[in-house]
Design a protein around this nucleic acid. Structure first.
Ligand SMILES: Nc1ccn([C@H]2C[C@H](O)[C@@H](COP(=O)(O)OP(=O)(O)OP(=O)(O)O)O2)c(=O)n1
Ligand SMILES: [Mg+2]
Length: 957
DNA sequence: GCGGATCAC
DNA sequence: TATGGTGATCCGC
């Protein structure tokens, strides 16, 4: 086993932790403290005087005393006491105590429940868990070799590389307000990430603060990723400074062991980066590898042999806190309720049988698998970036001195929304769900959300809703405000049909399996047609402003918005990535991907025995008997960082700088805007591998109804990735919808046309060679009218209110050019008292008219159908905000939440009395977006709420 | 769908 | 003086 580790590895003296094997003690003590203490006076005080019993400071639970790399010789008691001393009178402290009280309460409740369990219940649950364990074991896959690599005190190391003198000094990246990270010298004093700078300074008076420079980190990350790629071109990024590599193939190819691969990787990283060191974990799956990478940090590696025995032995004494997703709170809960602190204890009969009885299905399953050392062994699938927004939400938030003035708060909200919109535009996305976040001067956090009438991406569409939410909470004294947009989708991606955009339709085409015969094309049966193509929607202009605000505001930036595919990342392959947004890299579609199992069927499921914890989005190993074909897409997502699929080239450095660098407020305090804005790019995915996986994701994104479509894409492994990959070539290639010129009309920003079409019935024409199924998915209810065409037949199959399948079948030989089978008028005419009375359906027709597309129309039959967006069907006008398009099924105004018929805003009836006046006047602090900057655009998802307090109070702030 | 909570970097 | 920003998931309503 201990094969020659001789390779690579330079004997820099610090030849620490070369792979260790079979350890029985997971916490193999790192070979003694790093290096000799730099300077005597830098040695942290070793002990502190403490008298009395049960000192108050001992109860203050912070994350600063957790075991962490570089914290070995730290006097934790001293740290804790100082942290407590400096915090105890603060509002922050008070809030922490409040939260802690809640945790204790929760633990208490769970304990009671646990005690109340009957022997019968426990026995039954025990048997159930045993069965699960058996199933899990049967599926354990030890054939893959994974490396998890994590840079050592990354930010600090980058600065140290440029200013060597810093290496010997205790350095913290950040400012007196917040520390992003600290080098190992500083860590010996207890200085850590997320610690307020002033406390760090107190712990280590000589602490040197360095301002963060995100551009540098991004550039450095890009370099080391180049090294990662050498061992695994498809490596998954877990953040700016870490990644998961499946080196199974590399090892097979080179004949190297995992240990040697790790050594080689470390060598390459150091060489490429000019001295930056990293630590590597080697194990059979991602989760284990991640845990291992921390063991011999810094500049070390640890190998966990791929045998069940070694793994179980390793986990036996491993603190549960080491499991990703088990944080401070969960650790306390497990300890408090079950008396469990290690994975081994979690598996003890008396503990494991209680898991399903005290925790949710998902959580129990996660704990079980984690304790067994089971997790993803395959890369997360990649997704089609032209369709996938790449993220679930996008946000902006900022901390400032306590603020109470409404006007000031509204101005802040405006700024935030502007920034948000700017980012959304960069990424070409729009969203439907807006959330306002407020952190009171007491540090309590509250969120208020609203669902917009339709997807929006302009300030004029979004701000009013935000202001409404904000005003409803006034008066308040806040220290932070944030805005987040969710329910995202890409604007215009791939959709060539303006009509579809108008309707807000997502269209997907797929041919019935049996139709492949004809596709003679590839013997493999993978014709372009049999792939689920898809995506995309987007009501370009269609999504008009929510009446409320003013439609006065024209479609503003319309026409040319298409953000070029890649603003900055020139190096990126076309199909690749999303423009970098904030920090990093590329959105990890993993999240969505993981849910989109193979084939629509597996869309989502809850934990099932044997399935790996979603530690990392999983791509399905195949043995997934997703019986629950039609389960709600809500599978558990105990995701760990659903790593970014293929983080490739690093993006450009900094994004568009802070507009004018202004943001930063006074005195370049703290970390300033740098991080907040940085981001630019991070890494971009290498050319995303499109294919079956992508197709699946596409489906997921499209919210396909549970029922798998006929042409089940499911198993279609390898089914032509082609159709997908070509970015813009979407569905419209196969389903040739007419009216290209409408597009131009749009481009011309024809306001009238826009308004008119909006609620109009519309006609959707298609040209297919044989058969096709077009899946319609709209924001609005769809009312489908008759449909048929001279050249083909079609019928609808509805799925709920917003989706439907349009099945088209051509009658061969029929005029190919005749693309307008059904006369729109034939469509049910259920027009309700729609707005825009003046315009009827003419628009649509006009649109179809030109038919420039027809010119080169390939032979094929046409068929079509008329679709009527129910928006126009039945609407009511809010008497408060005058929004006139509330759909009938809503009893409250979609814009302002007022009850139908009511004349006074009912959204927030009771006005909170409101709390204390802001405390002391803090200094204006620039929102540094440090940490955030860190994370690549969302690689992180957390299991989080495994244990939720049962109660929930949603009162006025 | 919302709001609070948890987690990670 | 002074405790960040971004993204995601989960649970209970
Ligand atoms: N709360 C946090 C945690 C981390 N980071 C940033 C700074 C770190 O340099 C970088 C990477 O995070 P790590 O957890 O990997 O920490 P380090 O790389 O700094 O140290 P280690 O050697 O323990 O990996 O992310 C941050 O801004 N805020
Ligand atoms: Mg690191």
């Amino acid at each position: 086993m201990s094969d020659a580790c001789g390779s690579g590895r330079k004997a820099d003296g610090a030849s620490k932790g070369m792979g260790v094997l079979a350890s029985r003690d997971p916490a193999q003590p790192p070979p003694s403290p790093p290096q000799p203490m730099p300077q005597p006076q830098l040695r942290p005080p070793q002990q502190l005087q403490q008298s009395g019993a049960a000192p108050a400071w001992k109860d203050y639970q912070t994350v600063f005393t957790n075991a962490k790399a570089g914290m070995d010789g730290v006097d934790k008691a001293r740290v804790q006491q100082i942290v407590w001393e400096m915090s105890k009178d603060s509002a922050h402290f008070k809030n922490e105590q409040r939260k802690q009280a809640g945790v204790l309460e929760r633990i208490e409740r769970m304990k009671q429940r646990s005690d109340a369990l009957t022997p019968a219940e426990l026995a039954a649950a025990g048997r159930s868990m045993d069965a699960r364990i058996t199933g899990c074991e049967a599926r354990r896959d030890l054939t893959r070799t994974w490396l998890h690599v994590d840079m050592d005190c990354f930010y600090a190391a980058v600065h140290g590389r440029e200013q060597p003198e810093l290496k010997r000094l205790p350095v913290a990246v950040g400012g007196m307000g917040m520390i992003s990270t600290a080098n190992y010298v500083a860590r010996r004093f207890g200085v850590r990430s997320a610690m307020p700078g002033f406390i760090g300074k107190r712990l280590c008076p000589k602490l040197v603060f360095v301002k963060p420079d995100f551009a540098k980190y991004t550039a450095a990350a890009a370099v080391v990723r180049g090294a990662f790629r050498q061992l695994d071109p498809d490596f998954e990024s877990g953040g700016l400074d870490e990644a998961y590599l499946d080196v199974t193939d590399y090892c097979a190819r080179t004949g190297r062991s995992g240990e040697e691969a790790a050594a080689e990787l470390r060598r390459l990283v150091q060489e490429a980066s000019g001295g930056l060191t990293c630590s590597v974990g080697v194990a059979a799956n991602k989760m284990l590898a991640k845990i291992c990478s921390d063991i011999n940090k810094p500049d070390g590696q640890y190998v966990l042999p791929a045998s069940r025995g070694a793994i179980m032995s390793f986990l036996d004494t491993l603190p549960v806190r080491k499991i990703p997703c088990i944080g401070k709170v969960t650790e306390q809960v497990l300890q408090g309720v079950l008396g469990v602190s290690t994975c081994g204890q979690l598996l003890a009969p008396d503990s494991r049988c209680r898991l399903p009885l005290l925790f949710s299905e998902a959580a129990a399953g996660f704990f079980l698998e984690a304790a067994l050392g089971l997790a993803d062994t395959r890369h997360a699938p990649k997704t089609d970036t032209s369709v996938d927004p790449g993220r679930k939400g996008i946000s902006h938030e900022r901390t400032f001195r306590n603020m109470s003035a409404p006007a000031e708060q509204e101005a802040m909200a405006t700024q935030l929304v502007e920034a948000l919109v700017s980012d959304m535009e960069e990424e070409g996305i729009e969203g439907r769900n807006i959330t306002l976040k407020l952190k009171l001067s007491t540090f309590e956090v509250h969120t208020r959300a609203a669902t917009l009438p339709r997807h929006a991406r302009t300030v004029s569409d979004i701000l009013p809703a935000v202001l409404r939410l904000l005003r409803a909470e006034m008066p308040v004294t806040i220290r932070l405000m944030g805005v987040r947009m969710a329910t995202l989708r890409k604007v215009n991606a791939g959709a060539k049909s303006p009509l579809a955009r108008l309707l807000g339709l997502r269209c997907m085409v797929q041919q019935p399996a049996d139709a492949q015969k004809e596709g003679a094309a590839s013997g493999s049966g993978a014709t372009p047609h049999d792939v689920t193509v898809s995506p995309q929607p987007l009501p370009g202009y269609g999504s008009a402003p929510p009446a409320c605000v003013g439609r006065t505001v024209s479609g503003s930036q319309a026409a040319g918005v298409h953000r070029g595919g890649s603003e900055g990342c020139a190096a990126m392959p076309a199909a690749s990535a999303p423009a970098a947004g904030r920090s990093s890299a590329w959105p990890a579609p993993a999240a969505a991907a993981s849910l989109a199992g193979p084939g629509a069927a597996a869309a989502a499921r809850t934990w099932e025995p044997g399935e790996s914890p979603r530690l990392l989005a999983r791509g399905h190993t195949g043995h997934d008997r997703s019986a629950g074909a039609g389960r709600p897409p809500q599978g558990l997502q105990l995701a760990l960082p659903p790593c970014a699929p293929a983080p490739g080239v690093s993006g450009r450095g900094l994004g568009p700088g802070p507009d004018g660098g202004t943001r930063c407020s006074n005195g370049g305090s703290e970390i300033g805007w740098e991080l907040g804005h940085a981001g630019g790019g991070g890494s971009a995915p290498t050319t995303p591998r499109v294919g079956a996986a992508a197709a699946n994701v596409g489906q997921q994104a499209m919210r396909l109804p549970p029922r798998p479509p006929p042409a089940a894409v499911a198993g279609a492994a390898g089914a032509g990735a082609a159709a997908y990959g070509s970015g813009g070539a979407g569905p419209w290639d196969a389903l040739d919808v007419e009216q290209q010129e409408v597009s131009e009309d749009y481009g011309a920003q024809d306001e009238e046309l826009k308004d008119g079409l909006q609620d109009e019935d519309a006609y959707l024409g298609a040209e297919v060679e044989d058969e096709a199924i077009c899946i319609l998915d709209s924001d609005d209810d769809l009312e489908l009218g008759a449909c048929a065409g001279p050249t083909g037949g079609a019928h609808f199959v509805k799925h709920g209110h917003e989706q439907a399948e349009l099945h088209c079948r051509s009658t061969t030989g029929e005029a190919a050019q005749q693309k307008r089978p059904a006369e729109p008028a034939a469509v049910s005419g259920a027009d309700g008292p729609t707005s825009a009375p003046g315009l009827k359906r003419p628009r649509t027709q006009a649109a179809g008219g030109g038919g420039a597309a027809g010119a080169s129309a390939p032979a094929g039959a046409g068929c079509g159908a008329a679709v009527h967006s129910a928006t126009a069907g039945a609407v009511w006008t809010c008497q408060v905000c005058t929004y006139a398009r509330n759909r009938r099924q809503f009893l409250r105004c979609e814009m302002c939440d007022t009850r139908k018929g009511e004349t006074r805003g009912a959204a927030n009836p009771a006005r909170p009395v409101e709390q204390e006046v802001g405390s002391c006047g803090r200094k204006q602090q620039a929102g540094w977006g440090a940490g955030g900057a860190v994370v690549e655009r969302n690689q992180r998802s957390a299991l989080a709420a495994l244990l939720q307090p049962t109660r929930r109070q949603t009162g006025p702030l």
